[in-house]
Amino acid sequence: MATLTFEQPKHLAFVQKLEADIRFNLSDSCAQGLYLDELIALQPNALQGVNLGYAPIQGAFLLREQIAKFHSAGLSTPFNAEQVATFCGAQEAIFAVMSSLLSPDDEVIVFTPCYPSLAHLPTVLGAKVHTIALQASQKWQYDIDALAEHINERTRLIIVNTPHNPTGTVLSAQQAERICQLAAKYSCYILADEVALHGYSAEQPLSSLFSEYDKTIHLGVMSKSLGLAGLRVGWAITQDRELLQKMLNAKTFTSICCSAVDEQLARVALLHSEQILAQNNQQIRDNIAHFERFITAYAGLFSWHAPQAGSLALVKFNHAMPVETLAVALAQQQHTLILPSSVFDLAGNYFRLGLGNRHFAQGLARLSALIDEQDLYHSP
């Protein structure tokens, strides 16, 4: 049997290589969320009586009920607790899905740029990956015609992410319907990465676009819209009971179960999700307005498309200096992080902008200081 070779995701390797004291993160993919004392204050007795033994492998039933309710927002046919499995973050869920579905010589289609493991992990498992690149000239919209060209009888899995990381693009209902039609034609699965689905939206609130297709696996997590990455709880939802059991079997070889404390605190957060999301989404709106003022002040130096939903966007640095050089200088001199698009395998002078952080203004002030110190606004 061949050795499984895992590469560290490029964005994590980039941060590690910086060896800088990062105090402000302008590329954070999470909303702000709460501190522990703020979360416990929502339900002061939440941790009384929590058993510190192993939690159920599938996840605590009361938590799975809340996840099903949360992820069903806007759907005519809601999910139920038996369709939900919890994992230690979305990454473990991705591993469980792919290791349960993919065999050597299977084919996977993924739209890029994307979270690195979505494109890398299938290759580790021996599958062939076809990537379809989103284009800036198309405002990062999904190219469904390209999907139709790539899909075939060997396609096992289509991976879609909406709202999209790192562009903030959102699939339309018409695009999703066509993806489902193509998947049904070739009897393949859809992995719907919906980790930022229930957060900020520039227009109406979003709901899952793939719930009617019975070979969809829906991915969610506490970290993105809710901003609670310190609670290592993610989930997968599927109507396919056999696949769900295979995923749970895979989980027994990784974490076995989530932390009972994390699961209880996740349930508290979901019970109060409207309040948490309202606070987080207002922070994103405020930060979008702040960034609009920033790029107006440095007219022409930066350009972007504000996110349709979620807390992320791509920003183009319109300067001869490579954005990687800017990122290193910003980290080392101003203790502030931006992630260049190259870590997401996207060519061009872009960086990922995270709009969810309550310290966004301070980070932006550090970027402004670097621009002024190096006279980047007036130099070519």
Score class of each variant (00 low, 15 high):
residue 137 S to T: 13
residue 139 K to I: 12
residue 141 Q to Y: 04
residue 143 D to I: 09
residue 144 I to D: 09
residue 146 A to Y: 08
residue 147 L to C: 08
residue 147 L to R: 07
residue 148 A to M: 12
residue 151 I to G: 05
residue 152 N to M: 08
residue 154 R to P: 03
residue 154 R to I: 06
residue 154 R to S: 15
residue 154 R to M: 10
residue 156 R to H: 12
residue 159 I to A: 07
residue 159 I to T: 06
residue 160 V to D: 02
residue 160 V to E: 03
residue 160 V to Y: 04
residue 160 V to P: 07
residue 160 V to C: 06
residue 162 T to L: 09
residue 163 P to R: 03
residue 164 H to W: 03
residue 166 P to Q: 02
residue 168 G to Q: 11
residue 169 T to L: 00
residue 169 T to K: 09
residue 169 T to G: 01
residue 170 V to C: 14
residue 171 L to A: 01
residue 172 S to N: 03
residue 176 A to H: 06
residue 176 A to T: 06
residue 177 E to Y: 07
residue 177 E to G: 09
residue 177 E to S: 12
residue 177 E to L: 07
residue 181 Q to D: 09
residue 182 L to S: 05
residue 183 A to Q: 05
residue 183 A to T: 05
residue 184 A to F: 04
residue 185 K to Y: 00
residue 185 K to F: 00
residue 186 Y to Q: 09
residue 189 Y to I: 10
residue 189 Y to Q: 12
residue 189 Y to S: 10
residue 190 I to E: 11
residue 190 I to D: 10
residue 192 A to K: 02
residue 192 A to G: 07
residue 195 V to Y: 00
residue 196 A to W: 04
residue 197 L to H: 02
residue 200 Y to D: 05
residue 200 Y to G: 04
residue 201 S to L: 07
residue 202 A to K: 14
residue 203 E to L: 04
residue 204 Q to M: 06
residue 205 P to D: 09
residue 205 P to E: 10
residue 205 P to I: 14
residue 207 S to Y: 10
residue 207 S to T: 13
residue 208 S to A: 10
residue 208 S to V: 07
residue 209 L to E: 02
residue 209 L to R: 11
residue 209 L to S: 06
residue 210 F to M: 03
residue 210 F to R: 04
residue 212 E to F: 02
residue 214 D to I: 01
residue 214 D to K: 00
residue 215 K to N: 13
residue 216 T to Y: 11
residue 217 I to L: 12
residue 218 H to F: 10
residue 219 L to A: 02
residue 223 S to E: 11
residue 223 S to I: 00
residue 224 K to V: 03
residue 225 S to R: 04
residue 225 S to W: 06
residue 225 S to H: 08
residue 226 L to K: 11
residue 229 A to I: 04
residue 230 G to V: 08
residue 231 L to D: 11
residue 234 G to A: 07
residue 235 W to D: 13
residue 236 A to N: 08
residue 236 A to E: 06
residue 237 I to E: 08
residue 238 T to F: 13
residue 239 Q to H: 14
residue 241 R to S: 15
residue 242 E to G: 13
residue 245 Q to D: 10
residue 246 K to E: 14
residue 246 K to T: 11
residue 247 M to N: 07
